[in-house]
Amino acid sequence: MELTLLNKFDQDNIIMGKLDELINWSRANSQWYFQFGLACCAIEMMAAAAPRHDLERFGAMPRATPRQSDVMIVAGTVSLKMAERVKRLYEQMADPKYVISMGSCSNSGGPYWQYGYHVLKGVDQIIPVDIYVPGCPPRPEALLQGLLELRKKIREETPLRKTVNE
């Protein structure tokens, strides 16, 4: 939609389109993420927000509180002691909300799957996840790609109509 919007603005200053597309475009391009860094992946998330792999040029701003954020990036191992807090923080976010699971530990338990008596084997056991970013830790560019994939996913939503899948 970005290219067509720009093109249309060059020719005309009236654009015709669907309201669905406008809402999806605005939600996709300004994802304020909830910096939920738990372990090593948090350092790579910090590096993704740092000057070299700038996340803010994609519209993603870090927020400290779940009430003001759209996306929750679960970066790092979720332990059983922390699992209830993750669930509570997820419930404190306002709709529409998305979850990106970053790193092997929150995807599926990571290297601690075998003898980890206190490790949650994947954060999708307690909250619904939209995008999984693999790696241990994933490079900041991988997290960027995850955010762009989330954008593609948001563009296909239909916020005004209820469809069979919802």
Binding site: A39, T77, S79, Q114, Y115, H118
Partner: peptide, 25 residues
Amino acid sequence: GYLHRCFEKHCENLGYEQIVPFTDR
């Protein structure tokens, strides 16, 4: 204790060479 990942239990079940990546983390 919110990040207790059972490192010492893993060490009692893995070979000495396999423990090195766990010490990284």
